[in-house]
Design a protein around this nucleic acid. Structure first.
Lengths: 118, 118
DNA sequence: TATATATATGAACAATTATTCATATGAACA
DNA sequence: TGTTCATATGAATAATTGTTCATATATATA
């Protein structure tokens, strides 16, 4: 991390661009939060969980079956998804049903899907 | 990873759902690639680079200035972005100019942005 | 050809994280 | 109340990864 009172690129001609871009960057905190959100999508187990929930709400055990993983691993990942407000849940007796929180989840998923499949 | 010839949830009533969801899951390879893509968005340095490139194409040195990081770190991250086809570049003498590869990048970014700011 | 400059890259280290195992919590029911 | 079952969680381990430092590559120019 270098200090620069006046931002200067190695290429003097670019200093104007550097100043302009710097002034238009969103706050660090926003960009940090955004990275944290994408980090949640950046794990294949969680992507699979999200994808499964497109079809139907499911209990933890259901999801574990579909993914062929154990209950604990799924539960840990559901907590991550819950903390990012990507899934919601409802309790019914001993069973907890998870489902997708809102349409952004599908929108983000679809955009990514388009990118890799073109 | 448990073996299950016939998928069975702890809740017998759910077996139908488990079978249906399982049959509609995209291939593992696709979901793995999708997670890899989002992983690239899941780092604040790379998110900042992407965000900076929304404004203008820039050389490596420009980007390093805007982010207040050293050239090597930026160059390493640009390679990651390049490998995921999120940025493209053109060489002009000693300088290499980077820019965003396509509109999916902005679309994914915007969807994420909407999610965290609502 | 020798030098300077912009960028790329390999190795190493520190930090983060996904999974497993063991166990705890919470709800239903005998 | 005690037992069973679905889910949650803490600790530990293994694997991944971002940054730094040192150095290599590639281009321009003297």
């Amino acid at each position: 991390m270098e200090e620069n009172e006046t931002l200067e690129c190695c290429n003097e001609i670019h200093n104007e661009v550097v100043e302009k871009v710097s002034s238009q960057m969103p706050p660090d905190e926003i960009l940090y939060d955004l990275a944290e959100l994408f980090k949640v999508f950046g794990d294949s187990t969680r992507v699979k969980i999200i994808c499964a929930l497109f079809e139907s709400e499911m209990c933890v055990c259901d999801i574990a079956q579909v993914l062929g993983m154990n209950q604990s691993a799924i539960s840990h990942q559901l907590r991550v998804l819950k903390q990012s407000r990507l899934v919601k849940y409802r309790r019914e007796g001993k069973t907890v049903y998870y489902s997708l929180a809102d349409s952004h989840v599908q929108a983000i998923f679809n955009q990514g899907f388009e990118h890799i499949t073109e």
